[in-house]
Amino acid sequence: MAFLFRRLGFYLAAFVAAATINFFLPRLMPGDPVQIMFSSAGAELPPESLQSLKLTFGFVDGPLWQQYITYLGSIFTGDLGRSIKYFPAPVTAVLGQALVWTVGLMGIATVISFTIGSLLGVLAAWRRGSAFDVIVSVGAIFATSVPAVVTSLIVVFVFGFTLGWFPSGYAADPRLDPAFSLQYIGSVLYHGFLPMVTLCAVLTGGFAVTMRNNMINLLGEDYVVMGRAKGLSDHHVMIWYAARNALLPTVSSLAIAIGTILGGSLVTEVVFNYPGLGNILYQAILARDYPVIQGQLLIMTATMLIANFIVDVSYVLLDPRLKGAL
């Protein structure tokens, strides 16, 4: 329990750090930052938005520390200010809906690619040097070395434009109303398919390499050899002696991979015009909608910390040596 509490405390500190970056960046801009942002966003903004923009960045009257406290206070009460582009919509509303799509896309892609990648890595390591191992290893090198932008663009070109098998935009058919109907869900799956496959293609290779290396590093361990000496079936030893142990370091490396997964999913969404955070963010960047760009950092950080915490908990659950920690 103490372990998990310590992690939680650390995550809180990390979140405050991200918020602190957000707080200081506009203050490091030369001149009057709010004025600059206001003008760079175009002239159509109503004048009252200037005031709300100031509040968004914590420019209240008072010394710096007071501004900082006010800013942190508003963030922790869930107020990320108002968007410039969609004025007067609050940033949380703009990002909130998009977050659902992103987390869905990312979560499912992570589960699928982690499962497939780890499985491939286990088999490749177990049949080390076989044709299967060579194919997996070489495939993984390709998959991990091609940037997500490139993979997405190529997939959208081939399957979206050239073959026309899949739509290349939106999360569902825009003519349908969101509802819990078969038709709508089908449309969501159809539209989500390409981004999902792309994201899986980007991620699977990395998981396969990690798992393969972790497996190879412990195949010589005495308990694996003893499993074989016990006359257990090959796949029993592979799964319950080798893979089960190799899973531990693989899961902890998942924590570091989450950042990459997030980045990959942002990019994929932009290319596929998928209405998740990435796409909103892209629009925000083009429109220089600073409150949204900043809000995205906080929401992404929170997502990442929650994901990290899930990884922590599953690690503790997976390793009996840490039983006492829960």
Partner: peptide
């Protein structure tokens, strides 16, 4: 390590 890299870079670059 726990602050997501790309979003952080986006914010920095945007400013």
């Amino acid at each position: 390590l726990v602050v997501p890299n790309l979003p952080l870079l986006l914010v920095l670059a945007a400013f």
